[in-house]
Write a protein that binds this DNA or RNA. Structure first.
Lengths: 335, 335
DNA sequence: TTGAAAGCGATACCAT
DNA sequence: ATGGTATCGCTTTCAA
């Protein structure tokens, strides 16, 4: 029941405690014979180095703090899984934080800092620039995933949501759609702001300014309700862009099963994200895929670089989304 | 850039380092005046106690290791979110592990133990009983969530999957269904084994033994494919139980959109779990709800009890599922 | 290559 | 109520 320490192993192996430590540090010089002796002793005692004690002296915990606010948004479980997998594979641990609905990222970060995480990844949420400065002061690099702050001390990796919105505007107009609508996700999120901005700006550039709009949140239910309402009030709508896939799925279900609208013949629907269920045959949703793998890879690269070199300047990395053509949108003009 | 320690605060406040420590320990006796003085100094320096150093001496990290293998199974994001929220609220941190597809839980546990987590929660995965013994030896309590091991040194909290399967068998027979099928989830999981056993045993008890069966995995695609195959080969099937909701949703889509089968008129479908999408109007899936909140509460209770009292005997807690009546299943006899 | 000893940043015990 | 000191389990000089 008493936990075995390097001193116990040293005693059994007949070496000094320093030598035990060296055995478990890949870098150190140690005679293979002594090493084996120590490993054998460690094995019989069931010894493994105490990572906490190690952290105290090395000033490195090998822990990355991961802050994720929207775990139940279907886009994020995969993101989370990939982050964890990549971190584990590179020998890092993940301390997971999820701010409660009434909490800010700023509320949970002090905890992460108390545990002396070596770096922080914050997904789909922002922090105050005061907090960013505090992290910088403590030498804890931060990378935002799918959010950014201008002029603050943090790097960020984002899908190019503006360009995604523009693509959809172009596709709709090119296909000859004329009565367009947008159902917005959570109003204060940069993903929604950027997608909407790209979409609306591009439409305006091409001379279209009367777009029906509804304000929702990123959920199936919200997409369902708002689509129902919008389509009832505007029977002539022929193309609908939803802030993300799960909203688009709700909108499709509302249109088809409540209103008997045929998709894409009578109504074109676009989503955003490319979550797994977007590919289900019943939805077959045309959408902009967020290149999750590349975004994660880039996030970790930026973070690791800044762990090695804390003064490296922050960077904003925009990664283009990719159109996934399925069948929920008519992309050709009807002749 | 140099990190501020209690010594710095002590110097600024004009007190001893011990006093600084006491200021941040709720239990200790300290004069309100000195406390305020220290807090002020800490504030100006931006000091917060180093949790790593504290852990080293208290022998408590306040970290719970959470092992979750199937984050992308739609049942789990909510479970994860609730666990994190509850842990945070009680002042704990969560170190998250997700074994890679080619990894066992046993492979990631040593890491968790090196970080001296105060307890371990393992969801939907088992561990060897050797590993269980190792945790016990180190005094690290373990609670399994939705799995159990007989005779090992671990507590477990499970939905009563056997009884859930029995309920569905009864409901099917009571409604007069005669041509029954089961589509199994991952073969080696205790959830599938128990659900299937309960279902099949009860059918046999009531004299039904010719049940069509297909072996799948817990995914939408698997449910879709297998339902398609089963229904093509057995056009007379009138009731189908799927190992979980996401499979049932795949099965519904296959039946309706590929085969034009009307649900529940021509085919009754049951799922298991009650994930959020089971309530979507287009599915309206009749299912057995896993009482997630109660299961999580119980899991944490057992864990915390054993952190306080490591020698407390392991316990297996079975929590009954609850029938959620929606419209994918005909539950009354046709007259 | 190995051992002795200092130190990481706290807590906790023992005096005062 | 406060301060001094040992201690937690390691890593890392420094000598030998």
């Amino acid at each position: 029941m008493k936990r075995v320490t390097s001193v116990d192993v040293a005693r059994l192996a007949g070496v000094s405690q320093s030598t035990v430590s060296r055995t478990f540090s890949p870098e150190s010089n140690i005679a293979p014979a002594t090493r084996d002796k120590v490993l054998a002793a460690a094995e019989t005692l069931g010894y493994a180095p105490n990572a906490i004690a190690r952290s105290l002296i090395t000033n490195r915990t090998n822990i990355i703090g991961l802050v994720m606010a929207n775990i139940t948004n279907p886009f994020y479980p995969y993101v989370l899984e990939r982050f964890i997998a990549q971190l584990q594979q590179s020998g890092w641990q993940a301390l997971l934080f999820s701010p409660a609905p009434d909490q800010d990222v700023d509320d949970v970060l002090p905890l992460a800092l108390q545990y002396r995480v070596d770096g922080l990844i914050i997904t789909s949420a922002t922090m105050s620039s005061e907090m960013a400065d505090e992290c910088a002061r403590q030498g804890t690099p931060v990378v935002l995933f799918n959010r950014y702050i201008f002029g603050a001390n943090v790097s960020a990796v984002c899908c190019d949501n503006v360009e995604g919105g523009r693509m959809i505007a172009n596709l709709m107009l090119d296909a000859g759609h004329r009565h367009l609508a947008y159902i917005a996700g959570n109003a204060n999120t940069s993903t929604n702001i950027d997608r909407e901005k790209g979409f609306m700006d591009r439409l305006r550039e091409r001379g279209v300014s009367d777009v029906v709009r509804a304000q929702g949140v990123y959920s199936y239910e919200s997409g369902y309700e708002l689509a129902l309402q919008l389509l009832r009030e505007n029977p002539s709508l022929d193309a609908l862009f939803c802030g993300n896939d799960i909203m688009a799925m709700g909108a499709m279900d509302a249109a088809r099963s409540e209103l008997g609208i045929s998709i894409p013949n009578e109504l074109t629907i676009f989503g955003f994200d490319d979550i797994p269920s977007a590919a289900w045959p019943v939805y077959s949703l045309t959408t902009i895929r967020q290149p999750v793998e590349r975004m994660i890879e880039k996030t970790l690269q930026l973070l690791f670089e800044r762990i090695e070199e804390p003064d490296k300047a922050p960077v904003l990395e925009l990664i283009p989304g990719e159109l996934v053509r399925r069948t929920s949108a008519r992309l050709e003009r009807v002749s």
